[in-house]
Nucleic acid binder design. Structure first.
Lengths: 111, 111
DNA sequence: CTTATATACATAAGAGCATTATGCCTCCAC
DNA sequence: GTGGAGGCATAATGCTCTTATGTATATAAG
């Protein structure tokens, strides 16, 4: 995460959410998708991303499968089946947290 | 920050925003205010708070003044005058960041 | 009187997660 | 043949949080 170092700990959530919506993605693809969705404002650094992916894999949240595409290796990640509900819970909590934060900061939703 | 370890780096922003709105506050008061505003969901730990206050003071963002109230020492903090605009900028960025995050997480504002 | 709870500040140890800086490799356009 | 884009990875460093602990006063409960 580059432009604004405000939020740490968000990266895991972003990864899980994207994998929930897109079945499977590889690292570079995730960086581009986040950049797109945020109008170029959220830039995930590679160091942070790959560490996070490895950690989530180690924790059993993700499984990986490497494939060769156009002569280059891609490592696709997807959610492990059992973690579906956990992702939902996480997203629920994160949403609640953002709302509480908006209340504290007095940032009305929609502004 | 307790209940949800999602966001790190938010505490400084919270402190600055509260001091912008309330002229001056002391540490314990800040913990209670955040707890209130978040319906008991955001619990600032004392270790985090006092470290953050000391850092902001060291950076020249805040100035402190100790007073004795009811026999107990209170350390009131307030923004340094020159930092008014910086706080505005910070809050602006943070608001933008939250919105981008909502876009990436596909959490529609207001939900 | 003593104990618990609330008020109030502070610091140290440790962990977690990010940035920054590298490194390695391939494909393709100029 | 050089540079940029695609693609993965790790090490050093630093910031910020949690957890634990310490100090101290006021007040209510027993």
């Amino acid at each position: 995460m580059n432009v604004n170092p405000l939020l740490k700990g968000t990266l895991q959530t972003i990864i899980l959410k994207l994998l929930e919506d897109n079945t499977r993605m590889y690292g570079y693809e995730i960086t581009q998708k986040v950049k797109e969705d945020s109008a170029g404002e959220l830039l995930i650094t590679e160091g942070a991303l790959y560490s996070a992916l490895h950690k989530l894999e180690g924790d059993g949240m993700l499984k990986a499968k490497t494939e060769i595409v156009d002569g280059r290796a891609r490592k696709y990640y997807m959610l492990t089946p059992k973690e579906g509900k956990e992702v939902q819970t996480k997203l629920h909590e994160d949403r609640a947290f953002i709302i509480h934060l908006q209340n504290v900061l007095n940032l009305k939703p929609g502004l």
